[in-house]
Design a protein around this nucleic acid. Sequence first.
DNA 1: GGTGTATCTTGAACACGTTCAATTCTGAAC
DNA 2: GTTCAGAATTGAACGTGTTCAAGATACACC
Lengths: 217, 217
Amino acid sequence: MARSDDTRRLVVDTALRLFAERGYEATTMRLIASEAGLAVGNAYYYFPSKDHLVQELYRRVQVDHRTAVAERLPLGGTLEQRLRGVLHAGLGVMAPYRSFGAGFVSVAIKPGDAASPFSQASREARETSVSLFVDVVEGARPAVRTPAGAELPELLWLMWLGVTLFWVYDDSEGSARTHRLVDGLVPLVARLVRLSRLPVLRSTVDDVLTLVHEVRP
Amino acid sequence: MARSDDTRRLVVDTALRLFAERGYEATTMRLIASEAGLAVGNAYYYFPSKDHLVQELYRRVQVDHRTAVAERLPLGGTLEQRLRGVLHAGLGVMAPYRSFGAGFVSVAIKPGDAASPFSQASREARETSVSLFVDVVEGARPAVRTPAGAELPELLWLMWLGVTLFWVYDDSEGSARTHRLVDGLVPLVARLVRLSRLPVLRSTVDDVLTLVHEVRP
DNA sequence: GGTGTATCTTGAACACGTTCAATTCTGAAC
DNA sequence: GTTCAGAATTGAACGTGTTCAAGATACACC
């Protein structure tokens, strides 16, 4: 129904605006409802819980991340340049929600929760996010060559998750420390990818990949 | 006061027992109080919040970890053997709280929260935990030699944090996957420590250490 | 227009973590 | 034994996320 979609959208927009303005905990379901001009129960008709509104936030952040990156990625460039661009762009997209970082992660980390990045429910969102790093790797010139090949995008995505976690803890002005982390991490990763073809490291790389496989659910 | 200490202990014991029996969320403050034969407000006289009871759990887990490990560590052994022993022992100590893992981490992850492993409030607990890995490194025979030297214990502690996070998500029987992760990770770490002295890797190792330093609060 | 069904909306009610004014208890001082 | 200040304890009350029976609305069909 058209009306239904409107209400759903209204709830999300109001909630996300209030999240950014006041943080997660200060934004009560009653406040969301009253700001949207609805009854509190109505929001629950569309979203089973407050956490699901956070999941909606993830979705938007991801879409925005891809949009923000779409302008840079087709241009080519080295793995290092592309990776740096994508990570900084991601931090930029998340910036408005910085103050709400704690609630952000607290919700996402719950193993059972639908919002968890590893959950079945967010499989689509996860694959969308991983595909961003597939593009990073595949579009790089010169082409990336490493025994980690097929796993590399997923490993980069895991790294991005780690950077996000760091970002949440980073209370520096404008998340400056996280940006520094990215600037330090990216050349390191690029060098490790190159080194991974070295004979001395080859068996270690294989072991890492085996471990990653073995340990996956 | 003696009476005071008794009540405090009674609250903690009751809470931790119920956490292990029913999980974090199902253990309400009212239930803790009634099981302990107290008024709910009385628990709040000793603990500012439910989260602080979780912090108490961390403290105990850490003490138990050190105790469990004390029997193995003085025996010497390689870095690999010692590290493996410490990690498996840690998993053993945490095992009773496995079902409660989600709440466990959800509380610990909150950046502002006192229970966060990076918070000022848990500095002592953190240092105790890091000191475990100092012992692992210093007691190892043959002696560990790596340019990462002074940082190694803290890096191992970070790895342990990562393993703990993995454990929380691991729903396999007896946390089997986490144990496999440890068995795969430990030789890898040991090899990386050895490789870190290789000239080709030297500058990379230095960059990692510089990054770690630069990015610390 | 009238009827029926599925969709949408309402707000009181519930259990939770937490607070706090009021009350009881404890132990030192005389 | 009395006093009294501080420590310990109580439980009703508050605001929260969430539920749900009840009602309002929309729409297809006659």
